[in-house]
Design a protein around this nucleic acid. Structure first.
Lengths: 225, 225
DNA sequence: ACCTGAACACCGTTCAAGT
DNA sequence: ACCTGAACACCGTTCAAGT
């Protein structure tokens, strides 16, 4: 009931801290999300946070949960392929504002109510499509991972903490690097160096990648008959 | 020429250190791969490693390169879909022995010769399949990520440093957790709790997931005509 | 119930110095 | 060219103590 009494004690709580952690991670990247840094921002000792979170992993779980809170679980339509797609889009929509933090939701998919709802829906439509439970589980798990991969920057990527000029410099550098490759060995890379470099550094078209997955599952399903 | 003179000085080198780092990461997980720990194992100061690696990121790059060394780039067959599949299988085959370290190769795909060769092949077959360079880049990049996702354990997963008993305990715990969910809300999860829990905790069938991706790309390609 | 203070065992990294 | 020693600025976490 008393979340942030103005002018009084910090009034920490799981949600308040998680929200701030998300803001910090969005702004400065996941490696900036540190117990000590967070405490400093709240004007509080590091150990104050340990009253609300058992461990740092627990704090990261809080971040994942906070992101999953925003998921809007779609209603079933009767068309299983459309429902599969809608499920993935629902996840991606919630993750999109937090590309740097998206990986943190993976572990929470089997815990958070919305994560469970998406998993249930994904599994349900796949069983409906004719897959046995084991294969359906593989596909559902992978489908959620594909959704994640479409919003998260590649592993080890530093962008997000990069300015527009730095990104442009990155694109030019990459273009030059690709263009300098031996053309007989790497004809495609050399021929399309500029567009490839730009594509590698910019956002991806997530919708198409989800459509590829759904189309693949449809093809597999058709082979079952 | 002088790599490990028996009985003499440590004889460190980029390759020797990277190889040890891979062994350590495979055995104890990526978070065990630490500059200080590695130095201790070599009986050497931490700073000794900084002669061979500019920074820790550079060391991680060395790990990625060492893994990519094992890639056998397949010969083209003329069938673009088969070639796309072979490219992904080639990557997965090299990554499979090092599930915990697989994410480290992502950044090296555009640097290491074998990574470039796989990227070139992937892009080439997709352009051949009728996609414009930008779409082909999206798809190639994502295809390599899919390959990665099929071997790497889910984000935040601790298995690999788990014993067989601990994993069985995990499966039982997960089964119980899923089985305890409200059945009217999560009918599929409850109905197949044991097989789902087991599937979630064991290795995935990577081949099928790659086939799903290839089938999806084939479907997209067919829609282009 | 909620937070502080001091301490422990770790990190990556710099810089001057040794051989 | 290759490695050491000492130091700096960080981590997560425990544990006893305060209010």
């Amino acid at each position: 009931m008393s979340a942030t009494n103005p002018g009084s004690r910090p009034g920490l709580s799981r949600e308040v801290v998680a929200e701030r952690a998300v803001a910090l991670g969005d702004a400065e990247g996941i490696e900036a999300v540190t117990v000590r840094r967070l405490a400093r921002d709240f004007g509080v000792t590091s150990m104050a946070l340990y009253w609300h979170f058992r461990t740092k992993d627990d704090l990261l779980a809080g971040i994942g949960d906070h992101i999953l809170d925003a998921v809007e679980v779609p209603d079933p339509s009767g068309d299983w392929a459309a429902d599969l797609r809608a499920t993935m889009i629902a996840l991606v929509t919630a993750l999109r504002p937090h590309p740097q933090l998206a990986p943190l939701v993976t572990v929470r998919l089997a815990e958070h109510p919305h994560g469970l709802a998406l998993t249930e829906r994904g599994l349900g439509v796949l069983v409906e499509a004719g897959f046995d439970p084991e294969t359906a589980t593989y596909l559902a798990l992978h489908g959620l991972r594909v959704a994640l991969a479409t919003v998260a920057p590649p592993e080890g990527d530093k962008r997000g903490s990069l300015s527009a000029e730095e990104m442009d410099a990155g694109v030019r550098h990459k273009t030059a690097a690709l263009g300098a490759l031996p053309p007989q060995q790497y004809p495609t890379l050399v021929a399309h160096a500029p567009v490839i470099a730009n594509t590698l550094c910019r956002d991806e078209d997530t919708t198409m990648l989800i459509d590829v997955f759904v189309a693949g599952v449809q093809a597999m399903s058709a082979r079952l008959r």
